[in-house]
Design a protein around this nucleic acid. Structure first.
Length: 418
DNA sequence: CTAGGGTTAG
């Protein structure tokens, strides 16, 4: 279920916001914003996230890192459908004198977008006159971003038509156009996005590498490979400053073909002076996975300095598909230690596989980690699965302690909590 | 002191 749908459901149930103070405890000791960020990344519990954020929010710090910390906090709250808390948190920033600067206010608009609360984002945008904040393309772009993150693709073209007319200080720029392009791509209309691109060329608005990348990815995803290839050629001929992300989009498509094709493209990347990154290697790993070459896939994983959440999700999922639950368990433990455990479906696969192989103790070990790491809503869901699998039914109840392997992971967790 | 938009779902 998307967070925007959850939000709509929430709206039907509640009409007023509640304060956040009654529900949170102060986090002991002030910490720096960068410390807060690294703590926030590890924490899923929305109350802990709020407490960490509050303990850092009063320190003098760069707007960029405080924005990031706020967005992390908002995302944690959103996962638990704590929309009134999100509102209270974001609205509390209106007391900051910086609210009169457009960049600061735009950050708040974007944060609402992170929680799929587009109506709140819009309300903040409309309040700008009252707050005395100038309104230019900066806040307009923030509003478009909030719209995209709220999955309201069809509203972006609408805003694009109406707002520059309504507010004479708003002139869409290359980034506004980039988001218009993305809205069409997200709604599965890359042709329409191509039209906008041509339109930009006529109007003399720069088509950035990011806009190109958006369209390229959409063409590939919609199976328009020939169109994608000719767009790529066009980009190269124009002398576009190619970067990792655009190559990664090409690798995404190559991964559907073969590992060899991926390696070929990665070599091309290197030859133009780019260094394949974790995302690039993830596509190589994926290419091996879809061919069932799991030992090759694992080699790619083991060679990674910084495997990310997608690395773990993809590898564990495919190990499970291939019945390699033991290896899946090992990789899962690794993912837990670095706070990047896979999604619900993958964890479910793994646990079911372990149960099927009578590895009840290991299955319970996975379950314990999952319950510690998932947001509350998913934990509820997870407990239903445990019930169904009979994870703690009699006969299994004797061994309530988790296996020594998974206990190590949880011990590590406790150290992190201090 | 000029942000902000793009890539991984099996």
């Amino acid at each position: 279920m998307t967070s925007s749908r959850l939000y709509l459901r929430f709206l039907r149930r509640f009409s007023t916001a509640t304060g956040i103070d009654s529900q949170t405890t102060a986090y002991p000791g002030a910490i720096t914003m960068s410390k807060a960020k690294s703590k926030l990344r590890k924490v899923q519990d929305p109350d802990k996230a709020l407490a960490i954020y509050k303990s850092a929010s009063n320190n003098s710090t760069s707007p960029l890192s405080s924005r990031y910390a706020m967005e992390l906090t908002v995302q944690r709250l959103a996962k638990s459908q704590r929309f009134s808390d999100i509102e209270a948190l974001i609205e509390s920033h209106k007391n900051n004198p910086k609210i009169k600067t457009e960049t600061f206010l735009s950050t708040l608009i974007r944060s609402y977008g992170r929680a799929s609360m587009f109506d709140h984002a819009m309300k903040m945008f409309e309040e700008m006159d009252k707050l005395g904040t100038p309104r230019t393309v900066v806040s307009f772009n923030a509003l478009l971003a909030a719209c995209l993150h709220s999955d309201l693709f069809e509203r972006v073209p609408q805003l694009f038509d109406e707002f520059p007319q309504r507010y004479n200080n708003i002139t869409p720029d290359k980034i506004s156009y980039g988001m218009l392009i993305k809205s069409y791509c997200d709604s599965g209309k890359p042709e329409k996005a191509m039209e906008i691109m041509r339109d930009m060329e006529v109007k003399g608005v720069e088509v950035t590498i990011i806009a190109f990348t958006t369209i390229l990815g959409s063409l590939y995803k919609n199976g328009l490979v020939d169109e994608a290839e000719s767009l790529w050629i066009e980009m190269v001929n124009k002398g576009c400053d190619l970067d990792n992300t655009v190559y990664n989009v090409r690798l995404m498509n190559a991964a559907k073909e073969s590992p060899e094709r991926v390696k070929e493209l990665m070599e091309e990347m290197s030859s133009v002076g780019l260094k394949p990154d974790t995302v690039s290697y993830n596509y190589l790993m994926t290419a091996y996975c879809v061919k069932g070459m799991m030992s090759e896939a694992k080699k790619v994983y083991e060679g990674l300095e910084q495997p990310n959440a997608a690395t773990f999700r993809t590898l564990i999922f495919h190990l499970c598909i291939n019945g390699l639950y033991d290896q899946g368990l090992t990789v899962f433990k690794k993912s837990a230690i670095v706070h990047k455990i896979p999604d619900f479906k993958t964890c479910k696969h793994l646990t079911e596989g372990l149960v099927k192989n009578n590895r009840m103790e290991d299955a319970r070990g996975v379950a314990r980690i999952v319950k510690k790491k998932f947001p509350p809503r998913l934990v509820t869901e997870w407990k239903k699965l445990e019930e169904k699998l009979g994870l703690y039914s009699k006969g299994n109840a004797a061994a309530v302690s988790s296996s020594s392997q998974t206990r190590e992971v949880l011990d590590q967790e406790r150290e992190d909590d201090v």
